[in-house]
Design a protein around this nucleic acid. Structure first.
Lengths: 195, 195
DNA sequence: CGATTTTTTGAATCATATCAACGTACGTGG
DNA sequence: CCACGTACGTTGATATGATTCAAAAAATCG
């Protein structure tokens, strides 16, 4: 069992969790290790598990018709990987999850997930909390994504997620911002000069 | 009580719903009418109710620092209005909900919402289904929003939500697409000529 | 090291924004 | 019912920001 205090804290944050429930939940997660560049999930596959990121980081992206990569988000420590539409509805995923660093995960299979969803109110609470948090985050981000210039998006990313620019290759940062690597390079140059 | 077959259908879609539960849920929603241009919620207010749109349509938007309006989405019949982060966490809303036509809603107050969330598993199911659906939709849309040109966004909107261009002023359509009204006008002209 | 990948730079081009002006439709009060 | 005023939508000219393509420089990895 991988040690992860923050995973324990997350599990224990559910109200009304019994000792037995907690043990069952912890038992339903299995440790998985992935090397950098390996995929947790590929487009077209059905997502058979959801993973909690203990260590490492992942990009969650789609390949567009144009061939360009569009990164929806990065998952660092204490966030989750797995394609929810695919996992819940057993349909092929439209996206990839790829490790950008060597990574350690705690994964729950669909069988175990369904068992726990049926058996444990605390587990249901945690799952709905997670999807709700993700949804609220996406609601906040969307209007800004729409209206901001490339430079504004970059500056906001630095403010909200300073670790991204440290840990992620710039061409992936560009794919996350929806701009080209060349544009990102010019924006960074301009900002560096201005200070 | 406003008649709305699709609202009834929605409520009845919950598995394991008892007759008594259904009655309690229906009783917890009150009819509200709004005139065109009126606000269901303003920025800075705390969202005290969630509304099901029986008739009419709403824009859900933020005012950006630049003074520009950024429309996150429109809510037509059978969708919902209300700022979830504000409603759930009792914090001031960062967004507006404004009626674009005379509208009829079925609204549930926070008190009634919390009572039903505590009392009814079927109600919890419906709520989580709604937020999850909205979240999955936002996940699908986001990579496209990032990478598409203005014209592509417009064409996709026509395909996915053909009613928007019929019922919403063009400057609001532009605010939804993240472009200027002038650009929208030129895109429409170009498309009209091409056919 | 050497090879490959990643980032930067330059020049030309394209898409969209901006600003200003004009047309058109709509609703209201006379 | 008409005229007027206000909203909305369109058009044109120009400016700006971002992309594209090509190539060089820098960083990384085995």
């Amino acid at each position: 069992m991988i040690e992860s205090q923050s995973f324990l804290n997350f599990i224990r944050s559910a109200p009304g969790m019994t000792v037995q429930e907690e043990e069952e939940i912890l038992d339903s997660f299995k440790a998985v290790a992935l090397k950098s560049k390996e995929y947790f999930l590929r487009e077209g596959e059905i997502c058979k598990q959801i993973g909690y990121v203990v260590k490492g980081c992942f990009s969650y992206f789609q390949l567009l018709d144009s061939g360009r990569k569009s990164i929806l988000e990065f998952a660092f420590e204490d966030w989750w990987v797995g394609d929810l539409p695919s996992f819940l509805n057993k349909k092929p995923s439209g996206a990839f999850f790829q490790a950008l660093e060597d990574a350690e995960l705690l994964c729950i299979s669909r069988n175990a997930f369904e068992r726990m969803m049926a058996a444990s109110a605390a587990f249901r609470y945690l799952f709905h909390l997670k999807t709700q948090t993700a949804y609220l985050k996406s609601l906040e981000r969307s209007p800004k994504d729409k209206a901001e210039s490339a430079e504004e998006k970059y500056l906001r990313m630095l403010k909200d997620y300073p670790q991204i620019i440290q840990r992620v290759p710039h061409y992936d940062v560009a794919a996350y911002l929806g701009i080209t690597p060349e544009s990102l390079s010019r924006i960074r140059k301009k900002i560096a000069k201005a200070r």
